[in-house]
Amino acid sequence: MSSLPKRIIKETERLVSDPVPGISAIPHDDNLRYFDVAIQGPSGSPYEDGTFKLELYLPDDYPMCAPKVRFLTKIYHPNIDKLGRICLDVLKNNWSPALQIRTILLSIQALLGAPNPDDPLANEVAEEWKSNEALAIATAKSWTEQFAKEGD
């Protein structure tokens, strides 16, 4: 087993000792680069009161490249596709080694509060967001109710 870089150990310790409100990230016992993540939907958004599960993986060349992150909970959002893949600049071209797991998760939480239908990943969702925003928000709320509020 290769040892875990100090940077990852420090980030993990801080995620546990000083967690971000509304966000949890817990590494798997058998793979400390692989995290179970839960993000609370921001208040005032259609995702409010929902708990969204994600998975996050730190590739070998982290922090020279961004973490890999994906939603496991179904979500109706123009920048998140049916497989939970996320379109977010800081996960792609705007990644910088100065960013961290915590800043990435905060950016994802912020993306839930500020959908960007002009840079879509889920085209049908983005179309609806632009043509009938009220209906899109209602759908996002009902998906939150249906998929992001299961017991545990």
């Binding site: 998975e55 993986y57 590739p59 994906r70």
Partner: peptide, 11 residues
Amino acid sequence: MSKIPRNFKLL
């Protein structure tokens, strides 16, 4: 080399 989890390998 770390182990890439199933889902990220499949992605």
